[in-house]
Design a protein around this nucleic acid. Structure first.
Lengths: 195, 195
DNA sequence: GTCTATATGAAGATAGAC
DNA sequence: GTCTATCTTCATATAGAC
């Protein structure tokens, strides 16, 4: 059978009802504050002002909520990626990706920790092909063929630096613009020499 | 009453029975893998090959286990700190602290994520004075009086970079020595210009 | 130091009414 | 889309024996 369906559905094309979107927004906030395991369906329901049953009507399991939250966030990353991947030369594509990822991370600084370091999220990311593929594309573009330890450590440092810095208590009181300027300066320094 | 007791007990002076130490070792491993909230006392008991009641005999609550795990780890940091703080000039003290923290983090790379980013741990760290004080001393020495955004972002990036890089999938297959060499090179680059 | 047994509550999850 | 009611499982935690 000849199909025009893509092998992988674009995450951006996933549509949710308003009720589902509300659940995901509340869940993301609670995940960020308490971790995925530390967040119960009761807490999500309370956050929405409804009962657990109402939440279960929209998502059959807690896992589905976690996955949907991840898909939502990775859809934004996918959009950035698609724009960057068609850019030439590659060095410009990389620069652009870096800029946009930092912007995205700063915009969503209250939430990056869940996506980057929650054990449940990490496991989901490793097991769920579409999410894994997005991550691989990001690193593929960032490393641009380089596979040596230097390049990989540099990319890992950058990823850790961007995500980890934003949630750090030392910079909690800094405004977005100051944070972006400094983060960009520092990541450029990491990147330019090794990337 | 005149007392020779220090206002704060040194974390290194806390002694545990062998049974307690075994519990903490198993707990730390499970916390790293599943997060603190994702780890039950049943899992810890199973990991030890005993019943829950046996664990409860040594620690009255799960919180106590979490706190003891944190104290154990921070005691190592405290030891490094005490050695560094008496060094002169300050630039040497900072260099030494950085080196030893990186070594410590690499030695304990499977566990840094719990201490650095688990929501339960973060809350504990913010609420528990003795742990908070250790953290403040680390940043105090690292920043050495600097309070500007540049210095603070640099310190945050470094902290995030060290902890976050070690657990990153991109470097999961790299040996400790390669990791240390590259991490040191990169953190020096962040540090030397801003620190 | 470890066990069995048990209490109590909260978790995930479903059925069926409105 | 939301409710009440209910089920089951698992969580934290304790009592008391060996």
């Amino acid at each position: 059978m000849v199909s025009t369906e893509p092998a992988t559905v674009r995450l951006q094309s996933i549509r949710r009802s308003p009720a589902q979107a509300r659940i995901l927004a509340v869940a993301l906030n609670l995940f960020a504050e308490h971790g995925v395991s530390g967040t119960s369906l009761q807490m999500i329901a309370d956050g929405l002002g409804v009962t657990k049953a109402a939440v279960y009507h929209k998502f059959n399991t807690k896992s589905e909520i976690v996955l949907a939250v991840a898909e939502n966030e990775f859809a934004k990353l996918e959009a950035v990626l698609e724009t960057a991947e068609i850019l030439e030369p590659r060095v410009r594509a990389r620069e652009m990706l870096l800029l946009r990822v930092i912007d995205m991370a700063i915009e969503r600084r209250r939430w990056v920790s869940v996506l980057q370091s929650d054990p449940v999220m990490i496991r989901l990311l490793a097991d769920h092909e579409p999410l894994l593929r997005i991550t691989e594309r990001v690193y593929g573009l960032l490393l641009d063929g380089a596979t040596g330890p230097e390049a990989r450590v540099a990319a890992a440092v950058m990823s850790a630096a961007i995500g980890g810095t934003l949630v750090h208590p030392l910079v909690a009181d800094l405004d977005d613009e100051t944070l972006r300027r400094n983060l960009l300066r520092i990541t450029r320094r990491i990147f330019d020499v090794d990337g």
